[in-house]
């Protein structure tokens, strides 16, 4: 009898964990898929289909170390653009990135989820709560 209860509790726990994971990955997939569309319309022109950038003019999005280190700055960069010098992948870039004006916070989150999990990056979900939090602290 006892054995049965323990077994069923265990089984329930396993089911619960699996379902949690799948709802997490479901959310990730949703962000990623929507993000690929946002990327195509707002980012791909300059940063390229494979995030390769454009030689010395436009930085690539393949520097995982940079993205991880500056992840809390990424929403601000998308929302307000970037200006000045920036070192990415050991190369110095100088110029201006125009703001992606008109994007909703959720769209920024989706685009960033796509970028930080494509082109050789693997950072997991960048959800809208993270974007909201980071945008308050923009300099």
């Amino acid at each position: 009898m006892k054995m049965k209860v323990i077994c069923s509790i265990c089984a329930l726990l396993v089911i619960l964990i699996i379902s949690c994971q799948s709802s997490d990955s479901l959310e990730f997939n949703r962000y990623y898929a929507e993000g690929s569309v946002v990327y195509q319309t707002h980012c791909q022109n300059c940063h390229g289909q494979h995030g390769e950038g454009l030689n010395g003019l436009i930085p690539p999005l393949t520097d995982s170390v940079f993205l991880r280190k500056n992840s809390d700055q990424l929403p601000c960069a998308v929302m307000f653009g970037l200006k000045g010098k920036i070192t990415i992948g050991k190369r110095l870039f100088e110029g201006q990135m125009p703001p992606a004006s008109g994007l909703a916070n959720i769209e920024i989150a989706q685009a960033l989820t796509y970028i930080t999990n494509s082109f050789g990056n693997k950072m997991g979900i960048f959800n809208v709560e993270m974007v909201n939090g980071d945008l308050v602290k923009c300099r």
Binding site: N45, C46, G48, L54, L57, I58
Partner: peptide
């Protein structure tokens, strides 16, 4: 140019 130039030059 922020719009179509990068893709043109690529």
């Amino acid at each position: 140019c922020p719009s179509i130039c990068p893709i043109m030059q690529r």
